[in-house]
Amino acid sequence: MEEALDKVLDDTMNMPGVTGVLCTDKLGLCLGARGNAPAHSSGLIATLANHAKALEANAEAPPIVCLESDSGNILIRAKDGITTAIYKVPSGP
C-alpha cells in the first residue's frame, strides 16, 4: 500500500544534501523515515507544524518551518494532513 510513499522518501534521500526524511500524519504517528531522521521524533515534528499553522489561521498555503543548527537544517511542511520533514545541509542561494 505504501509503495508510492516509499518511492517519494527514497527519491528525496537521493537528492544532494539530504541526510534524512520523515513523514507523519496529523496525530504524530510516523508513516516512514529514512536516514538520520529518527522515527520517534514524528510526534514533535507534527506538533511543530500544527502550532506554526495556528500562528496564521487564515493563510492559504501551509507554512514552512525551518530549524537551523550547525549540523544542518530541518525543513517541515504539512499538506493535506501529512507532515513532511527533510533533514539537509543548507544549499546555496
Binding site: V8, V21, I82, T84
Partner: peptide
Amino acid sequence: TSDHAAAAM
C-alpha cells in the same frame, strides 16, 4: 516533496 508525499498517501 510535501506535495508528492500527500499525493502518495
